[in-house]
Simulated assay, not measured.
Amino acid sequence: MTTPLKIALIGAGAMGRQHAGYIAKESAASLVAIADPFSSALADEIGIKHFAGHCEMLDQVRPDAVIIANPNDLHVTTAIDCLERGIPNLLEKPVACSREEASQLIAAQQRHSVPILVGHHRRHNPVAERAKAIIDEGRLGRLATVTGMWQTCKPDDYFSMEWRRRPGAGVILINLVHDLDLLRHLCGEIASVQAMTQNSLRGFEVEDSAVIQLEFANGALGSLTGSDAVVSPWGWDQNVNEVPIFAKHLEQSCYFLAGSEGALSIPQLTLWRYGDTRGWQHQLVCESHRYPQDSAQQRQLAHFLKVARGLAEPLVSVADAARTLAVIDAIQEAARTGQRQVPLTP
């Protein structure tokens, strides 16, 4: 029988608490320590060691692997601390806060040859796997338009932590990064962007709402709208039974893809196509595709254990995640300048 992998957790906030829950359900892993400078509450609940500083924890505990879930602007320096000690890590998204930071992490990983899995967990969701298979099988024909939405109302106390109100946060980098990564995964690389943002609903330094136009390298055109301050049932977290803290509206869709041969609504995976005759005067025929009801995060953890043991390559590498970050950078520059931008990959 394989000895459970000893995992340490850096960051005991909302995401860290979620990761702890997934580890508790995984027999092949054991959570052995938590580092968080603000609170020992989670470690005390579980009954494991707590450290204020993560470097002290890494040196004393010497875990087999680490999950990094601290504030966004600490991701790169923390991941490099793990790399320098030869410890594989699952790095929560975003992989970095800038293209320059991503380049630093890519260079550090090349020096140390230690694996990193970036936590774009939606790629592990069975919905995403089946949707990609439908697209790759050519059921939509040539993809033409992509429409995405992520809109919800975060409670005021979500922003009690200062880092969520200042640069390095915002609805684009915290939330829409997931949608952009998944749309890249499903629809192909993004060639250019245009964007508008607003912070008028919450009044913080960072945006609370955004509208983004996407041009994909394959010629498809897309739009993505997002807000963390509105009333809406439309968004992956409400429409997919994935993150339990969100109230669910599972009958609603958050992505709509249309091509020359068919259209697909996600997450329902309803495929619309013509029968024998095409044209708007003819009724469309729909078919629904089933998928296993597995947890994306639990599947991500199982994959990470294989990555940490050297049995699998990361589904989302640092270089791959950096391409999503390049799209984010381009979006933020487009919103600032009002001009179309081309993502510049590190």
Score class of each variant (00 low, 15 high):
Pro4Ile: 12
Pro4Ser: 13
Ile10Thr: 07
Ala12Phe: 07
Ala14Lys: 13
His19Gly: 02
Gly21Gln: 10
Ile23Ala: 06
Lys25Pro: 08
Ala28Gln: 14
Ser30Arg: 14
Ser30Asn: 11
Ser30Cys: 07
Ile34Asn: 07
Ala35Gln: 06
Phe38Ser: 08
Ser39Gly: 00
Ser40Asp: 14
Asp44Leu: 09
Ile46Trp: 09
Glu56Thr: 14
Met57Phe: 08
Met57Arg: 05
Leu58Tyr: 02
Leu58Lys: 01
Arg62Val: 12
Arg62Ile: 08
Arg62Gly: 04
Ile68Arg: 02
Ile68Ala: 03
Pro71Lys: 01
Asn72Phe: 08
Asn72Met: 05
Asp73Gln: 13
Thr77Val: 13
Ala79Gln: 04
Leu83Met: 02
Glu84Trp: 01
Arg85Asp: 09
Arg85Thr: 09
Gly86Pro: 09
Gly86Cys: 10
Ile87Tyr: 09
Leu90Lys: 05
Leu91Lys: 04
Lys93Phe: 02
Val95Met: 10
Ala96Val: 11
Cys97Asn: 14
Arg99Asp: 12
Glu100Gly: 14
Ala102Thr: 01
Ser103Glu: 13
Gln104Ile: 10
Ala107Gln: 15
Ala108Asn: 14
Ala108Gln: 14
Gln109Lys: 15
His112Ala: 03
Ser113Met: 06
Val114Glu: 02
Arg122Ser: 03
His124Phe: 15
His124Ala: 13
Val127Trp: 12
Arg130Gly: 01
Lys132Trp: 04
Ala133His: 12
Ile135Gly: 08
Asp136Ser: 12
Leu140Glu: 13
Gly141His: 11
Leu143Ile: 15
Lys154Glu: 07
Tyr158Pro: 03
Phe159Gln: 02
Met161Ile: 11
Trp163Thr: 08
Gly170Met: 05
Leu173His: 00
Ile174Thr: 05
Leu176Lys: 07
Asp179Thr: 00
Cys187Leu: 06
Ile190Gly: 00
Ala195Cys: 12
Gln198Gly: 04
Asn199Val: 04
Asn199Lys: 09
Leu201Met: 07
Gly203Gln: 04
Asp208Ser: 15
Ser209Thr: 11
Val211Cys: 14
Leu214Asn: 09
Glu215Asn: 13
Gly219Gln: 05
Ala220Ser: 13
Leu221Met: 10
Gly222Ile: 10
Gly222Met: 13
Thr225Ser: 09
Thr225Leu: 02
Asp228Thr: 09
Val230Leu: 12
Trp234Thr: 05
Trp236Arg: 10
Asp237Arg: 03
Gln238Asn: 11
Val240Phe: 03
Val240Leu: 08
Ile245Lys: 09
Phe246Glu: 09
Lys248Arg: 10
Lys248Ala: 07
Lys248Asp: 04
His249Arg: 14
Ser253Lys: 04
Ser253His: 08
Tyr255Met: 10
Gly259Trp: 01
Ala263His: 11
Thr270Glu: 15
Thr270Pro: 05
Trp272Gln: 15
Arg273Ile: 06
Arg273Thr: 13
Tyr274Leu: 06
Gly275Val: 00
Gly275Met: 07
Arg278Met: 12
His282Glu: 14
Ser288Arg: 13
Ser288Thr: 11
Tyr291Val: 00
Ala296Ser: 14
Gln297Ser: 11
Gln297Pro: 03
Arg299Pro: 08
Arg299Lys: 10
Ala302Gly: 05
His303Lys: 06
Arg309Pro: 07
Gly310Asn: 08
Leu311His: 06
Glu313Met: 12
Ser317Arg: 11
Val318Leu: 03
Ala322Ile: 11
Arg323Phe: 00
Ile328Leu: 15
Ile331Asn: 03
Ile331Gln: 01
Glu333Asn: 12
Ala334Leu: 09
Ala335Gly: 14
Gly338Trp: 09
Gly338Ser: 01
Gln341His: 05
Thr345Ser: 09
